[in-house]
Amino acid sequence: MGLIPTRTLIDTAAAAGTGLGSFNVLHLETAEAIVAGAEAVGLPVILQISQNCAAYHGGLEPITLAAAAVARTADVPVALHLDHAEDEQLVYQALGLGFGSVMYDGAHLPYADNVAATARVVRRAAAHGVFVEAELGKVGGKDGAHAPGVRTDPGEAAAFVETTGVDALAVAVGSSHAMTKRGAALDLELIAQLKASVPVPLVLHGSSGVPDDLLVLAVGAGMTKINVSTHLNGFFTRAVREVLASQPDLVDSRKYLAAGRHALASEAGRLLVLLSLQDQPAKRES
């Protein structure tokens, strides 16, 4: 098992009509926690490293090498994905670092420019056998750049996929990035329309704000790759705060980071089971 191509995991989930958790790495402890959670429930997972995360670590390579090392020793299948890269050059760097997939995010560009840039990325990535995700219809929550009510148009999405050749498409269906409360309302009818119109797996961004029941329904309606970051970070941070509050003289960071790692691992595993629809036989049939 260990580190395997993202395409393998996504194709398997799409064929089964189940969801696949894709969780963001912030630092080594989150990578370890995500994989530990996946191992605890015996399910595959995708480790995501964002452009913002790379910037925090002073470059893409250090955190990538760490996450890849964790993935290679896992007892379950783990893939490595570059998330929300608006910088084409960062995408091209990722192609040489062992990523199984990259997300080029050109959703901030005019439609024609997004198509042209995404198509360039697809051509370069194909030469490396790397799976490409793109985004159409701005998903909110990034620096407030979101017009309320923006949704991905099914016809435009189908044309975008055909023109660019992308392998997966992130769509705007009502979720928003960086939500700390799980109150998002998804447009399930639109998800079903997109599923019927678009010949590649669909990706749900901003899933931290989506409650459990809607995540299950979203998968049933046609979503495959489910991105989560803020929700898991909350478990990590709350656990760290509890340790520091109870032990104000503690200075060994391993002791409070271990608590955060354990809390994140437990919730990551729970989400993976939820998204796999193992406890939702009725939803799986829908």
Score class of each variant (00 low, 15 high):
Ala158Pro: 06
Thr73Trp: 02
Gly17Ala: 07
Ile10Ala: 01
Gly155Ile: 02
Ala127Ser: 15
Thr224Ser: 02
Gly155Tyr: 04
Gly129Asn: 11
Thr118Leu: 14
Val102Asn: 03
Val35Gly: 00
Val78Phe: 02
Met103Arg: 03
Gly2Lys: 13
Ala119Gly: 07
Asn233Arg: 11
Phe23Lys: 03
Gly165Cys: 10
Ala145Met: 12
Asp213Arg: 11
Gly100Phe: 08
Gln278Trp: 10
Val45Cys: 02
Arg261Asn: 06
Gly149Ile: 07
Gln247Glu: 15
Ala170Arg: 03
Glu162Ser: 14
His231Thr: 01
Thr6Met: 03
Tyr92Phe: 10
Gln89Trp: 13
Val228Phe: 01
Asp143Trp: 11
Val171Pro: 02
Phe23Tyr: 15
Ala126Arg: 15
Leu250His: 13
Ala147Gly: 09
Gln48Asn: 04
Arg72Leu: 09
Ser266Phe: 01
Thr230Ala: 04
Val173Phe: 14
Leu272Trp: 09
Ala221Gln: 07
Ser253Lys: 13
Ala245Arg: 07
His27Val: 05
Gly106Ala: 15
Val243Thr: 10
Ser50Cys: 07
His177Asp: 04
Arg238Thr: 13
Leu9Phe: 05
Leu204Cys: 00
Ala172Glu: 04
Leu109Cys: 11
Thr18His: 09
Glu133Arg: 02
Ala112Trp: 06
Ala33Asp: 10
Val121Pro: 08
Ile63Cys: 08
Pro5Phe: 12
Ala192Pro: 09
Phe236Glu: 00
Ala184His: 12
Arg241Thr: 07
Arg151Tyr: 12
Gly144Ala: 14
His84Asp: 10
Asn227Phe: 09
Leu186Ser: 04
Ser207Arg: 03
Val240His: 00
Val41Lys: 06
Pro201Ser: 09
Gly220Lys: 10
Leu28Asn: 00
Gly106Leu: 15
Asp252Cys: 14
Val171Trp: 13
Gly137His: 14
Ala259Cys: 06
Glu156Cys: 00
Pro148Arg: 15
Gly37Val: 02
Arg124Lys: 14
Asp279Cys: 12
Val122Asn: 05
Ala66Glu: 00
Leu26Asn: 13
Glu135Gly: 09
Gly100Asn: 07
Val35Arg: 01
Val35Thr: 02
Ala66Met: 03
Asp75Met: 03
Gly140Gln: 05
Val166Lys: 05
Leu9Val: 01
Arg261Asp: 01
Gly59Asn: 03
Ala263Tyr: 10
Thr8Met: 11
Ala16Thr: 00
Val173Lys: 14
Asp83Cys: 03
Asn24Val: 02
Ala239Gln: 04
Gly155Cys: 08
Glu267Pro: 07
Val76Ile: 01
Ile10His: 01
Ser101Gly: 06
Val228Tyr: 03
Asp187Val: 15
Leu275Val: 00
Arg124Thr: 06
Asn52Asp: 12
His84Leu: 08
